[in-house]
Design a protein around this nucleic acid. Structure first.
Lengths: 185, 185, 185, 185
DNA sequence: AGATAATCGAGACGGTACGTCCCGTCTTGCT
DNA sequence: AGCAAGACGGGACGTACCGTCTCGATTATCT
């Protein structure tokens, strides 16, 4: 009954915002400039995203790549793959962006919900594999799977945000080895 | 021959900036407001710190607290204490502040150096204890101590910044148990 | 073959617009708000009145009140009554509204026509009485009746719009006395 | 003790605003454009005048020409000159501008004060001459001088704002004649 | 005791971006 | 067609900070 939102707008705006974010960073991302670059009125942007933070959240969600995850009967391999994939994804994202999201999440509840939902997907995938591995007796079963997940994924964020050390596929393997024990054979 | 700088100014400004940083975050930290709150002219602030980032750098150095740590001959106890202390310290800090610092660190190299130096202290303390425990055969020695440290401390930041789950002393114990194996007897 | 226009719409819109005009003035009159207040779509308003100015034109025609005026054989009394009635009418209207109408009239020719027609009625009534009085020798006949009317009615607007002084019935009497000379007996 | 305001700014801004006002009218006067035209930051304008209305008030006050008034021993001549001068001044001002000022005055008390002060000067000059004439027996003394002033000046505004009739020097003379009586000789 | 020179407060200034409010036009589907 | 609902491009608003700049007024220290 009403004029529907122009679907193309979302794409144009997010594309423009992405460019800006990449080239100028979060602070330098100006709605005015995004609007101009997208060939769209500023009001149109604010009609869809109430603030810069929300726009960036949507942007991230848009950029999100599925963590393609096909479980095999080799939990160790699955886990290594998964952690390495997550590490690679994080390594490809500007650290400042991740930190900005964390900060926005901590300050604005609505943003927090969305950001947490974003990470939760990956978290859940890892949890599933870990639980699976545990059932097959590959992991010390005195530890809750959630804790193990924290110890597999947490270090990635720790390095990215805190120590600034690089995230390599090797590091992912090291983490899995530490949790599952050295390769049996 | 010249009028010396008023020593009290540094303190007043840093105190005011700290308040602002805590309550409004890095982005919301406004030099105008800091100047007003500190009862100091904006010029005076810019005379000492050439930018907001540098001011925050100085501020961070001020915020540092010692992690008091006295090693005993009980590495497991030492480790649990240390991790619990760090967890408590983090839990007492507004998550947004930690995230803001991470973001500022990622954006401004000089801020990054200082922030990393800030966390490095704690990191080093944990590393020492872990290495010590490893020498006493308490930990699987196929894993480098740095990795274990990441798996002890990383999850704390992960919870604080990413999942938003609480940081309890219990959680600290769980982490240590996971790394050292369940209490032998 | 076509759906007829909903007659009720005109009334609802003009009523809403009148409210807005009274409370917020011409500039503050927003079509968006009028539409909402009238429970009508903006499109519907624009279908009938092509612009804000035209809407106000229509509105003004609606606001017109008759100045009930029954001439007797006492011109002085008639004049005093008439001027007092006009003064009371003006005093009861928010000064800002009168000023806004004047401004709109000066800016938009079509509004000007309507507004002038609105006041002209009153003007004409006074002119008639003045001419009548003059014929009866009550007024110095070296002055054109139009001038006298200006001097009777003009001061009312002058006070309302310029000096801000109150418009009382007494003041109306004073004006008439000044023009006709003090009550003979 | 502080950096003084740049005196040149007032002039540049008011000049630019005057241009805009003349060419685009009150509504079309945009602070952004004024700032650009004056080569001044928008903030600088807002620092001095809190709103568009106040800026225009200042502008008018700036444009204000003294009503040069040298009393002679010929009150009738003085009065005619004075009223004619005021009429000429009003005739030279866009009616919409006068109406806008009246509207702004009616809505914003602060603006009202200023605008009234602006007109009050002229009002006072006329009052003085009228009182003078009355003392010399030129006017019927049963009428308060304030009333006569209203009847001399009010019609000018009435014509300008309400009836839209022209303001000529002749009309000024007619008004004076009506109040003082036809030229004795 | 002055001269000299940097410090400090106060706040003006040119800028950039923000998020809001309207305007008048448009698109869509229900009546 | 008329109408409700609301998206859209566009323009202006007034606010908040930024970092730079001018001013005195205020301390020292050096002559």
């Amino acid at each position: 009954m009403v004029r529907p939102r122009d679907m193309a707008v979302d794409g144009k705006v997010l594309a423009a915002a992405g460019e800006e974010l990449r080239h100028r960073g979060y602070d330098g991302l100006s709605i005015d400039r995004v609007a101009e670059r997208a060939g769209v009125a500023k009001t149109t942007i604010y009609r869809r995203w109430p603030s810069k933070a929300e726009l960036v959240v949507a942007l991230i969600a848009h950029l999100r790549e599925d963590v393609p995850f096909a479980p095999t009967d080799d939990p160790r391999g699955d886990l290594t793959n998964l952690v390495a994939t997550i590490a690679a994804g994080l390594a490809a994202t500007p650290p400042a962006l991740v930190a900005d999201l964390a900060a926005a999440a901590a300050r604005e509840p609505r943003v927090g919900d969305r950001v947490r939902a974003l990470w939760a997907e990956r978290h859940a995938a890892v949890t599933a594999v870990v639980a699976n591995a545990q059932q097959q007796g590959l992991v010390l079963d005195h530890v809750a799977p959630e804790t193990l997940v924290d110890q597999l994924v947490g270090p990635l964020y720790y390095r990215l945000l805190v120590t600034g050390e690089p995230l390599s596929a090797d590091y992912a393997r090291t983490l899995v080895d530490s949790v599952l024990g050295k390769e049996p054979r």
